[in-house]
């Protein structure tokens, strides 16, 4: 179980990485923490001609904070979030999620940006960042742009990121102190990929409510009705339950079987209950 041969380059900065990526269109792949890419390489499920190692670019490790937002560089690792070595915009949601993500040895290298760019349907961050309405900063040959975190992933291992673009940072609106969140990950083993995963966030001060499902046979599934119900002032569990059912009904394209539907419903309700209790 050894990777096929590839070239390896380590650019000095993001601009150089963008140039390399553009020059090698389709042949090169970015290497950040490598915690998802290396297994694919070792199993020869991926065999890029060249790896562009961006794991230690200082620009990608920067963090910033203002009154309303926290910006985290794409190279911030799961462990940095877990240990609160970077500012937390989420009133504890992100550190909590990080703690349950794979294993510490993986969290020490795996990055936020890598997780978003790969868009594994069972991954945690795409769903969480959709629930927080994060903005994703990317850079490519045509310059920088910002994408919505809510619909950044478009499918299984598919995103709005162009082939020659790099995720640079995430700009995450801060939850207020009054905000509440809920998180439910149903996995058969600690650290394993989720069978179902739900994030619920309500920030009454902003009239904000979001419920997002991960591990949902595709990109994160934003549960519109449930989110709306959660944003309201009178939150009745029965009404929320009906909203969840409605959202699951409208997700016919995900082709959930009976088991999956049941698990997603349970995960969504568990996350929601944590918010409203």
């Amino acid at each position: 179980m050894k990777a096929a041969a590839f070239d390896y380059v380590r650019p000095r900065n993001v601009a150089a990485a963008v140039d390399l990526l553009a020059a090698d269109k389709g042949q090169a792949q970015l290497l950040a923490g490598g915690q998802s890419l290396l297994p694919l390489l070792n199993l020869r499920l991926a065999s890029p001609a060249r790896l562009i190692d961006i794991s230690r670019l200082p620009e990608l490790a920067m963090t910033d904070e203002d009154d309303a937002t926290v910006t985290l560089g794409a190279g911030v690792t799961h462990a940095m979030i877990e240990d609160r070595r970077v500012p937390d915009p989420s009133q504890g949601l992100m550190p909590h999620v990080a703690l349950g993500l794979a294993y510490r040895a993986v969290r020490n290298r795996g990055t936020l940006g890598g997780s978003l760019a790969l868009a594994d349907p069972a991954a945690e961050w795409p769903a969480v960042l959709a629930a927080l309405e994060a903005e994703i900063g990317v850079v490519g040959p045509n310059g920088r742009r910002r994408l919505s975190g809510t619909n950044f992933a478009t499918g299984i291992y598919a995103t709005r990121l162009a082939e020659d673009e790099i995720v640079t940072a995430l700009r995450i609106p801060k939850l207020s102190r009054a905000a509440r969140w809920g998180y439910a990950k149903l996995a058969r083993k600690a650290g394993a990929f989720a069978d179902a995963l739900a994030v619920a966030v309500a920030d009454p001060r902003r009239g904000y409510g979001r419920v997002v499902l991960g591990a949902a046979n595709g990109p994160p599934l934003v549960m519109t009705e449930a989110g709306r119900a959660l944003a309201g002032t009178r939150r009745d569990p029965e009404q929320l339950r009906r909203a969840v059912e409605t959202d699951l009904d409208s997700a016919a394209d995900r082709r959930f079987d009976a088991y999956q539907r049941r698990l997603h419903r349970a995960a969504a309700m568990r996350a929601i209950v944590q918010v409203i209790q």
């Binding site: 297994p39 199993l43 058969r188 083993k189 600690a190 650290g191 394993a192 990929f193």
Partner: peptide, 11 residues
Amino acid sequence: TLADYLMPGAA
């Protein structure tokens, strides 16, 4: 792989 073949863990 061990992602599909689950072995008992300490937790």
